[in-house]
Write a protein that binds this DNA or RNA. Structure first.
Ligand code: ZN
Ligand code: ZN
Ligand code: ZN
Ligand code: ZN
Lengths: 172, 172
DNA sequence: GCCTAATATGTTATAACATATCAATTCATT
DNA sequence: AATGAATTGATATGTTATAACATATTAGGC
């Protein structure tokens, strides 16, 4: 897997709006954790901030390299523990087809939280690496559920990963 | 990941019908390779035979352990090369969510080979591990394609992995 | 049959991804 | 401050997959 260059939010300044988005996402995460009695510690915040600063998903070891710029003693468990926490709290998703991690974009927040559990879908461009999280709902969700039922299966809400080409790469 | 006990087709006799199925599948694979100018060597045949003898997908290293019963010097590349070949020739699929491999069930053969490329779908039971390959077609295929297109994406034919509960496990 | 090029396999080492274990620290609660 | 639970540090290991290079086998032209 070859991947794009990475951004460190504290060393490489980003645009004001992107920095603002990151701050808002971190504040949201803090609230979310507080509301669930989960501790949003510095280590966890740092990992989420690094992910938020990227345009692309990161692997755990890319994240570890970035983390070590601030925290030279960081080890694999440092990263994996933070990722586990963030995933348990639905702040981060894992992309299984690329062994990489990205922040949840929270498109699910505010939509029927009970009936309509968070069931994300990822559109992954095989050309440029763009990874877009979109809700898995509507006709697609229904078709999935019904077709699985035809085979006796009850499908769970595990994220769906769809590979292909994004709009920009289709033109090129 | 804990997995079910494994079967070695040459050491642990299976039912006559299962053995017959394996033989038919191997013969089919040989024909298929011949038709495409691909060499269905002993090493590749052996790996496919081991996969066909199982009720479940195997990891590469489970396969390696089985292979070593006949071929004590086998190494990881031995298995991975055979798997690469078998996957290139659509005789085996990789399940990304479990890092495991299983034989293609060829439900796609004989159905509009040109228009309707092999686009498999796997129904994975999270309780018993059953892995069922079914065609990705009809309303689900259309819904996938159309929903992706709404976001500007052109989806490719990479297998879809749906986790959930099989019929038997739903009852229990 | 013999040569050659391509393909496949053997062999060793290492990259890439993830977890187990136990000690030390932090933190909320009493 | 003492207690116990959660978190983090530190070391080691487990699991999945590929790189690199040598050797062997095969197919096809002569
Ligand atoms: Zn999400
Ligand atoms: Zn793209
Ligand atoms: Zn198939
Ligand atoms: Zn089941």
């Amino acid at each position: 897997m070859s991947r794009a260059p990475l951004t460190d939010p504290e060393h490489a300044p980003v645009s004001d709006s992107a920095a603002g988005d990151t701050e808002r996402a971190l504040a949201h995460a803090a609230e979310h954790c507080e509301a669930h009695g989960a501790r949003f510690t510095k280590a966890r915040r740092r990992v989420l901030a690094l992910l938020l600063a990227q345009q692309q998903p990161l692997t755990a070891y890319q994240l570890l390299d970035l983390l070590r710029e601030h925290q030279p003693g960081a080890q694999p468990p440092t990263v994996y523990r933070a990722l586990d926490f963030l995933m348990r709290n639905e702040l981060v998703h894992r992309i299984e087809s690329t062994n990489s991690y990205l922040p949840c974009n929270h498109q699910h927040c505010g939509h029927h939280p009970a009936r309509d559990a968070h069931w994300p879908q990822f559109l992954l461009c095989d050309s440029c690496g763009e990874t877009r999280e979109v809700p898995l709902d509507g006709a697609l969700r229904q078709a999935l559920t019904l077709q699985a039922r035809d085979y006796g299966f009850e499908v769970g809400a595990r994220p769906l990963e769809l590979h292909g080409l994004c709009a920009a790469c289709r033109k090129a």
